[in-house]
Computed example of a mutant assay.
Amino acid sequence: MSHHGKTKAQKGSLPAMTVTPVAAAIGVVLRDDQVLLVRRANQPDAGKWGFPGGKIEPGEPVQAAAAREVAEETGLVVRPLHVFTAVDAFHRNASGQLVTHYVLIAVLCEWISGLPQAAGDALEAEWFPIETLDSVDIVMSVDVARVASMAAKVRDDVQ
């Protein structure tokens, strides 16, 4: 085999990391003009505020996964209404190489009962006014303010 037929990995460089996108559900829980956010305890996005959520279990419907994750991370009882968008969450190492890729499937949820109590992967859980998300002094995960505003519009359109 000639030198020209070898791949870069065969020439001695490190092989490319294989990253498979992982499907996860996020529960976008609205109560009046507020949205529920949690501060994440673990990577990815440790310390950042975002929607409660996590990996979808095999055989678990997306809406059920969102409601389960909200309950696990906050103790709230919610009614999942419908999927309204998806967000790519790419996480790269210091050299810029892709480490994880989550596809966050956003499910609009209606608050039924409970007070937010952080548990599981959440350090804190609080209600935030949707219109202040662009101006609050907290570090948020990707697209949180945009997705929360989109959820409010979707809710208003279906009511």
Rank of each mutant, 00 (worst) to 15 (best):
M150D: 07
S95E: 14
A145D: 07
V158Y: 07
A24W: 08
G47Q: 12
T7R: 02
A9M: 05
M17R: 15
L104F: 07
D157G: 12
I112H: 04
D137V: 10
D32I: 10
Q159W: 14
L81N: 11
G50Y: 08
V107T: 08
V158K: 07
Q97I: 15
L123S: 10
R40C: 11
K48A: 15
A25G: 02
I112A: 05
S113P: 05
I26K: 08
V29C: 03
V29R: 00
T20N: 13
C109G: 01
C109N: 01
V144W: 02
T74K: 05
A66D: 02
S2D: 12
A125M: 01
A151N: 00
A118D: 07
D143F: 10
T85K: 08
G27C: 01
V107K: 09
G53Y: 11
S135Y: 15
S95L: 15
L30S: 06
A145H: 01
R79V: 06
I56N: 06
A64R: 01
A151F: 00
D45W: 14
V147W: 03
V144H: 01
D156R: 05
W127H: 00
G5K: 13
F84Q: 03
T20C: 11
L98F: 06
L14G: 12
F90W: 14
A41T: 07
I138Q: 07
L115I: 14
R31T: 09
R40M: 13
A118R: 02
A66M: 00
E60C: 00
A89K: 15
R92M: 15
V142S: 13
D156K: 06
V99Q: 08
A25L: 03
V158C: 05
S95N: 13
E57D: 12
R39P: 14
A23W: 03
V139I: 13
W49E: 12
P52H: 10
A148N: 01
A9G: 09
E72Q: 13
H91D: 15
A89C: 15
A64C: 05
A145R: 05
Q97D: 15
R68V: 01
L123Q: 10
E60K: 00
V107E: 03
W111F: 02
G5C: 15
K11D: 08
P61S: 11
V87S: 09
T18H: 08
G53C: 11
A118K: 02
H4Q: 14
E126H: 05
S13M: 14
R31G: 09
A151C: 00
R79F: 09
R40E: 10
D134R: 04
P61N: 15
P80S: 05
D32W: 09
I130T: 02
Q63R: 05
A66P: 03
D45I: 12
L98Y: 02
V158A: 10
L123F: 04
D88V: 12
K11F: 11
R79K: 13
T74W: 01
V70N: 02
A148Y: 00
K48P: 12
I105L: 07
V77R: 11
E110L: 06
G59K: 00
E73I: 13
G47N: 07
D33W: 06
V78E: 03
P58L: 11
A65F: 04
A25V: 03
A9F: 06
A41R: 11
P52G: 09
S141V: 14
K6P: 14
S135G: 12
H3V: 11
D32A: 13
H101L: 13
D33Y: 03
D32Y: 10
G114C: 10
G120I: 05
